[in-house]
């Protein structure tokens, strides 16, 4: 393992401009990244969570040399993504996924042959390398079928096969399991883990909390172009108020009842949400001082009251962090 961070980002911004109209042009500006700082250590999986439009794909595209930043610097393997893109491109892989990005009218093997040549994989190694990645993603039996006959999951696997064909040192995976059935998603996660054991640094963006929790020792949450939190899953739980959560449901609560819950010992946060005729109070607990029985005792006059205790999930953490950022 080297001492150079796999990824180092300082003050990164990216503004998109779009123009409308012909004679009277209207220019609108969107700030996709707003002064982002980030360091990722090598040979690990780093997870990036964030809602749609948070700037995750913009960041991935800048780091993979497909987009220029507006200001700031981004280094991958210690090399600048703008000035040294030619050095970086053979050393990084990118999996954007989705239905597009492949030559659908030809077969998977020919797709991979084309990219193997663009990556300079030696001719005597090419076929072996293609067989290796096809087997690794589980497409060895469909290698000679046209890609247009592939299911969404198979296309996703082919995207990944192309991303690892040249054996990159850093692999950017942008929502790699989106649209996959549970079995394919599980296989993909297994593959991602095995890549790390081969020494690859994985930069993973995902919407799926359980996926991030399962794969990533470290997670950053992104919202509106900024990193709003970064820690281990346990660290993030503490950040939003603890790793225990109580949920109390009834047909409406009065404000004084919610205040009373808020003042119970160890309560760090109370969120009230309406579900049709019912209201759910989500109570985040910092310690073991408060029990479900105490919550029931604080809410008398609700015979229908249901209280349950669970571990604070990464989804709770994510929603808390993203909602704090909301206007």
């Amino acid at each position: 393992m080297t001492n150079v961070p796999a990824i180092e980002v300082r003050g990164l911004t990216r503004v998109f401009e779009s123009r409308k109209g012909f004679l009277f042009r209207e220019v609108s500006r969107t700030e996709a990244l707003r002064g982002l700082d980030l360091t990722v250590e090598p040979e690990a999986i780093f997870g990036l969570l964030g809602p749609n439009g948070a700037g995750k794909t913009t960041l991935v595209k800048i780091l993979s040399t497909l987009l220029l930043p507006s200001t700031g610097t981004a280094l991958v393997l210690g090399h600048d993504v703008v000035e040294e893109s030619a050095w970086l491109r053979p050393r990084i892989g990118l999996v954007l996924g989705g239905e597009r990005g492949l030559y659908n009218r030809i077969n998977a093997r020919d797709n991979l042959r084309y990219f193997a040549d663009l990556y300079g994989i030696p001719p005597h190694e090419r076929e072996h390398r293609i067989d290796e990645v096809l087997e690794r993603v589980g497409l060895e039996g469909a290698a000679d079928r046209r890609v247009e006959e592939y299911s969404r999951g198979m296309k996703q696997k082919l995207h990944i096969a192309r991303g690892i064909l040249h054996r990159p040192q850093v692999l950017f995976l942008d929502e790699p399991t989106i649209g996959l059935d549970p079995k394919s998603a599980r296989e993909t996660r297994k593959l991602v883990r095995s890549l790390v054991s081969d020494g690859v640094t994985i930069f993973l963006t995902t919407h799926y909390m359980f996926e991030a929790e399962e794969l990533c020792p470290e997670i950053a949450v992104m919202s509106k172009g900024r990193i709003v939190a970064r820690d281990t899953v346990a660290g993030l739980r503490q950040l939003v108020g603890g790793d225990r959560t109580l949920e109390a449901e009834a047909y409406g609560f009065e404000d004084r009842e919610v205040d009373a819950i808020r003042h119970l010992p160890g309560v760090s946060k109370v969120v009230s949400e309406e579900y049709g005729p019912r209201t759910r109070l989500t109570v985040r607990l910092r310690s073991l001082e408060t029990t479900p029985d105490q919550v029931v005792a604080t809410l008398p006059g609700h015979p229908e009251l249901a209280v349950r205790e669970r571990r604070t999930s990464l989804e709770d953490v994510y929603l808390d962090l993203v909602e704090e950022e909301a206007p």
């Binding site: 993979s64 040399t65 497909l66 030619a86 491109r89 053979p90 990118l94 954007l96 989705g98 597009r100 990005g101 492949l102 030559y103 659908n104 990219f115 663009l118 990556y119 300079g120 192309r162």
Partner: peptide, 13 residues
Amino acid sequence: EFGTLEPTVQSPT
């Protein structure tokens, strides 16, 4: 149209 311009430009060639 195919979305292959991005991975092609991203290659070292």
